[in-house]
Amino acid sequence: MPQIRFVIRLAYAPAFFVGYLWFAVTLAHKGAPLWALPILLGSALAVSFVAERLAPYEKAWNRSHGDRGRDLMHAVVNEVSIALSVLALPLVSGLIPNFGLWPTGWPLWGQLTVAILVADFGITLAHYVSHRIPALWPLHAVHHSVERMYGFNGLLKHPLHQAIELAAGTAPLVLLGMPQDVAWLVAFAVAIQLILQHSNVDMKIGPLAYVWAVAPAHRHHHLASPIDGDVNFGLFTSLWDHLLGTFRSGSDTPKAGQIGVSGRPDYPRDYLRQLAEPFRRDV
């Protein structure tokens, strides 16, 4: 068992990310039906749960906090909304003229890489301003209300805030002329990355922690502190955090009882109340 733990800590993050994106690109090349990606995402969540139990960062976070049903609702609603957005892409592309600059002649891997880097900028910027603009913070606070960090947390967002991030990340891609098959792949890549960002696996990624925005860096962001947690906004990379001066690293990442919405120990825990919380006048 110690040997298995050691291998998971070192290999889990890169193997998970590259492996699942390889599967997704391979399915796209083979013209697989659309329902193949949700099945692949379901298997990724299952692998995440197993890895979290074999090599946990914080054992207490593997135990339910009465949040499983709520988290499932968030995940289903948000992933379905993303799928509908991708399905609507041809209509949106028909209404909004694009510059025709998309590198359609490139291999699918190259196109996906471009899409990831462009989406990373837009979503990171939307995330950053959500901590700066008072009108956006209540929507984003739903995501910060989690009391433990595990793979499913990345899919927990208020639908309106997810729509804001989705628009910020995909608008430049639509203007460039991104095709629908690449849109499906980048949506899948975002889900895989969010699972890794919030994973409870005690992953050891060495120097990659300074450029790859997975759990070792992102846990700092969930500290229940308006100052110490106001860091590491990146989705895929930490590039923009370095430029914004908001990057933080180190071993003092939060443990059980140290995450959540600062000053709000009473933050609602059930799904419907979380949807309504941003619109309460007394908040």
Rank of each mutant, 00 (worst) to 15 (best):
R9D: 04
R9F: 01
R9Q: 14
R9G: 14
L10P: 07
A11F: 13
Y12M: 00
Y12A: 06
A13H: 05
P14G: 07
P14F: 13
A15L: 13
A15H: 03
F16K: 05
F16D: 03
V18M: 09
W22P: 03
V25I: 09
A28L: 05
A28C: 06
K30T: 08
W35Q: 03
P38D: 05
I39Q: 13
A44N: 06
S48G: 09
F49H: 13
F49L: 06
R53N: 12
K59G: 00
A60E: 15
N62M: 04
S64V: 00
D67T: 01
D67G: 03
R68C: 09
R70S: 11
R70V: 14
L72S: 13
L72R: 14
N78G: 07
E79M: 14
V80P: 12
S85H: 05
A88P: 02
A88F: 01
L89T: 04
N98W: 11
P107E: 04
W109N: 00
Q111V: 01
A115T: 04
F121N: 02
F121I: 15
I123T: 15
L125K: 01
L125G: 03
H127R: 11
R132C: 09
I133V: 15
I133D: 15
P134N: 11
P134W: 10
A135G: 12
P138N: 11
P138G: 11
L139W: 08
H140E: 06
V142A: 03
H143N: 04
S145D: 08
R148H: 11
M149W: 10
M149G: 07
F152G: 08
N153W: 04
G154A: 09
L155K: 07
L156H: 14
P159V: 01
P159W: 03
E165V: 12
E165P: 05
A167S: 05
A167L: 07
A168G: 06
G169S: 03
A171D: 00
A171K: 02
A171C: 02
A171E: 01
A171R: 00
P172R: 01
V174A: 13
L175A: 12
L176P: 10
L176G: 08
P179H: 04
D181R: 14
D181F: 04
V182K: 11
V182H: 04
L185M: 00
L185E: 03
A187M: 11
A187S: 13
A187C: 10
A189H: 06
I192M: 12
Q193L: 08
I195E: 13
L196E: 07
L196T: 05
L196Y: 05
H198Y: 11
H198L: 01
M203T: 13
G206K: 10
A209M: 10
Y210V: 00
V211K: 10
A213H: 08
P216V: 04
H220W: 09
H220P: 01
P226Y: 06
D228E: 14
D230T: 04
V231D: 08
N232M: 02
L235V: 15
F236M: 07
F236G: 01
W240H: 08
R248W: 02
S249A: 11
S249L: 05
T253F: 02
K255D: 04
A256T: 14
A256R: 15
I259Q: 12
I259T: 06
V261H: 09
P265V: 04
P265N: 06
R269Q: 12
R273K: 13
L275K: 05
L275A: 01
E277H: 08
F279A: 03
F279K: 01
F279T: 02
